[in-house]
Nucleic acid binder design. Structure first.
Lengths: 141, 141
DNA sequence: AAAAAAATGCAACTTAGTTGCAAATTCTGC
DNA sequence: GCAGAATTTGCAACTAAGTTGCATTTTTTT
């Protein structure tokens, strides 16, 4: 990780009152640099020389989710994918598109969805998530 | 299962060109009678006297999904929940609401969501799914 | 620099879902 | 209805994402 990225992740962790540790800086750095949500295994793959234990990565992700720096974006094939929260609003992230042919997932930041309306009285909606399925440009046509 | 339900599930299975077997009739009957998506374990719980092997239920669900009688509604705690497809359109089911306090899930059949628009050129959207989170009437307030 | 607080790594575990195969059930053509 | 083909079922063993307990190491505080 570059010095710049190091100080950026360090600042975010400090603001969140989390210990600035190697595993947290590395994990957060990978997520901030990714244009799509990543699983624990995909994050681990990005670490050179040694890397971190999967348990540590899972616990790191849990702590980042708890303070709101990271979101659990979606489950794909029974595996959680995480993304940095910096481009998500309080009540909804951009939709995620998964290609049913090749399995790739994309962040649909251009697609705007209105918040759900018309729920029965008594229900309080705090967050909504939209998943899209279909063919990506490479697999369509 | 009542005689009426038996003949109804049998008809649906025949139309779908599936063998009408005890496990399929029972599974489909349970899903048709449920007002919310169910997991394999929840379906198995509804079977009296003996029931069926979990492998058979999983394979039954796979066959019902393949012919379109049943949908994989959503993953909750890494567990798939299935629902009969009779009230879903081709491109989207009703949103599903999960209470973050008690964990219960509800079908929000009253909530209408427009199909996503504005995706980058080349993407073909075939289905969309909306998940809602918040407090149910029992847990809010 | 020492003590306190928290993170890390390891091994063992949990659990939803899957696979291969033999036995049982359902369907097809007579 | 009945024999044979096609398909489903149950069982045991397996897979893999994620979790837990605990001893060790790192980070922070004073």
């Amino acid at each position: 990780m570059s010095d710049h990225a190091h100080s950026e992740t360090e600042r975010l962790l400090r603001e969140a009152r989390l210990y600035s540790t190697a595993c947290r800086r590395a994990t957060l750095g990978v997520l901030l640099g990714s244009d799509r949500p990543l699983s624990q295994a995909q994050i681990a793959d990005q670490f050179r020389d040694g890397g971190f234990n999967k348990v540590s990565i899972y616990r790191t992700l849990a702590s980042l989710v708890e303070v709101g720096l990271v979101h659990k974006a979606f489950l794909h094939k029974r595996t959680w994918h995480f993304e940095a929260a910096h481009r998500c609003s309080q009540t909804q992230c951009h939709p995620h598109f998964t290609c049913t042919r090749c399995g790739a997932t994309f962040c649909m930041t251009e697609v705007r969805m209105p918040m759900a309306q018309g729920q029965p009285r008594g229900f309080v909606i705090l967050r909504q998530q939209v998943r899209l399925e279909g063919y990506c440009p490479g697999c369509a046509g």
